[in-house]
């Protein structure tokens, strides 16, 4: 096997070294360099870019991103749990219900985000229906604010929460719930004392799977948040394009990367083994 294994792994290692590790090393180096006069980077080495992240202006964006990502994750958890419970308890059409959750995931993320742009804009369906029925006189500005970003993120990542929750619920021994009822637990008590603690692995997995991409989101805040609702992802993109401050953009990227790595470590530590 050893020779075969070598040839099988070679392309993957080439990929890892040249297209994953090397770019990160370069970004790491850039983050410690000084901004060049005409963009790009130059010596000397400095930690200034990292210090700038703590600048109130940029620190606020980081905190905002964490707050939005956390809210989106919490919303996903609350919305996904009953749905996962419903699917795991259905008998005849379980596969259909599951596919109905996965299906939007297979269609373009860009299209799904655009769909909300289409629904929420001033002349969008919500405003047209509301003004048409006379509920409101002037259209509401539903787009280009934090709420729109939150809706977009929840819509985009809900399946990532439903699937791990479903996986843990599906494996749960139904006699445990009977035992809880038998010992006097009402449905809500059984939910919080038995179902939720036993779904911990799925909750952790879903939380990481939703929180990490939400934290680094670029497309959703850009399209649905407009210029106003800036998140870390937009900040990075801006530093590498318009602002041409590569060291600062790199420093934020490395920070994001560290947060993602911590989340992965958490996932490794808590998620059900069979999901790895």
């Amino acid at each position: 096997m050893n020779r075969l294994r070598f040839w099988f792994l070679l392309p993957a290692w080439v990929w890892i070294v040249f297209l994953f590790i090397a770019p990160l090393v370069i970004v790491c180096a850039y983050s410690l360099l000084t901004r060049g006069t005409y963009g790009g980077v130059e010596l000397p080495w400095t930690l200034e870019s990292y210090a700038r992240i703590l600048d109130p202006l940029y620190g606020a964006i980081l905190l905002r991103s964490i707050a939005i990502a956390a809210s989106a994750t919490a919303l996903c958890l609350v919305l996904a749990f009953p749905l996962a419970l419903f699917i795991s308890r259905s008998k005849r059409h379980k596969n259909l219900y599951l596919h109905l959750v996965i299906l939007p995931f297979w269609t373009s993320f860009l299209v799904r985000t655009y769909a909300w742009l289409f629904l929420l804009r001033d002349t969008g369906l919500f405003n047209t229906v509301l003004t048409g029925t006379g509920v409101i006189r002037a259209p509401l500005s539903l787009l280009y604010n934090d709420a729109a970003v939150l809706i977009g993120l929840v819509y985009g990542f809900l399946p990532f929460m439903v699937l791990p929750l479903f996986a843990t619920l599906e494996r749960m021994d139904p006699s445990l719930l009977e035992a809880a009822a038998d010992l006097g637990a009402r449905p809500w008590a059984a939910f919080f004392r038995v179902i939720v603690p036993l779904s911990k692995a799925g909750i952790w997995a879903g939380t990481v799977l939703v929180f990490v991409p939400c934290l680094g989101a670029y497309l959703t805040p850009d399209l649905l948040g407009g210029g106003k609702a800036v998140m870390v992802g937009n900040l990075v993109q801006n530093q590498f394009t318009t602002a041409r401050d590569w060291p600062f953009g790199s420093a934020i990227s490395i920070t994001l990367m560290l947060l993602a790595t911590m989340a992965l470590a958490l996932f490794n530590w808590r998620a059900p083994k069979e999901m790895l």
């Binding site: 809880a180 009822a181 038998d182 036993l198 911990k200």
Partner: peptide
């Protein structure tokens, strides 16, 4: 009457012990 309102108790074939609770906490549950 639902199971939680009946004064009977079942020992399940699989025992159905709560895996996230200790032996003592399992006994304390009801």
């Amino acid at each position: 009457r639902p199971p939680y309102a009946r004064n009977v108790s079942t020992v399940f074939q699989s025992y159905a012990l709560f895996p996230h609770l200790t032996a003592g906490a399992n006994v304390e549950f009801g």
